[in-house]
Amino acid sequence: MTLEILKAKEELRNLIDAYAYLGDEKKISEQMGLFTKDATYTVYMNGVVIANTTGTDVLEKEFSGHASQVKTYFTLNGQHTAKINGDTATGISFSQLKMIRENEGKDVITDYSVKYEDKYVFQDGRWLIKERVGYFLIIEARALSN
Rank of each mutant, 00 (worst) to 15 (best):
A89D: 05
N85M: 10
H80A: 13
E11V: 04
H80Q: 14
L59W: 08
R142P: 11
D17P: 06
Y112D: 03
N77C: 14
K115Q: 12
K83I: 12
V114G: 06
R126K: 13
E131P: 03
R142G: 14
G134C: 12
K115N: 06
V114L: 00
D107I: 02
L34V: 01
G65F: 10
G105P: 06
K7C: 07
V133N: 14
L6V: 05
E131L: 09
N52K: 15
L76N: 13
A67Q: 05
A20K: 01
G47F: 06
L22R: 04
Y73C: 13
F136K: 03
E102W: 02
T40I: 08
F74C: 15
Y21D: 11
Y21Q: 10
K26T: 00
E4D: 10
T75M: 11
M45Q: 13
I109C: 11
D38M: 07
N52C: 09
F63P: 04
A89I: 08
E131G: 03
T56Q: 00
M1D: 09
A51G: 12
Y120L: 05
T72W: 15
Y44M: 07
Y135P: 05
V43M: 09
K61Y: 01
Q79W: 12
A67C: 15
A39K: 02
M32V: 02
L12I: 15
V133I: 15
A143I: 15
G105T: 04
I138N: 14
H80W: 07
D38H: 08
Y112L: 10
V48H: 02
V114R: 00
E131V: 06
E60L: 06
H66I: 15
L3Q: 12
E10N: 13
S29R: 00
D124Q: 08
I100H: 07
I16A: 06
T54L: 09
A39Q: 12
Y120R: 02
T110H: 01
E10G: 07
T88G: 00
G86S: 10
S95L: 09
G55A: 11
V133Y: 08
E10A: 13
L59Y: 11
E102R: 05
E25G: 07
L12T: 05
E117V: 08
N85P: 05
F63L: 14
Q79E: 15
I100T: 09
T81L: 13
K7F: 05
S29H: 02
I138F: 03
T56P: 04
K7Q: 10
T42N: 01
A18H: 08
G78S: 14
T36E: 04
L76T: 13
D111H: 14
A8P: 05
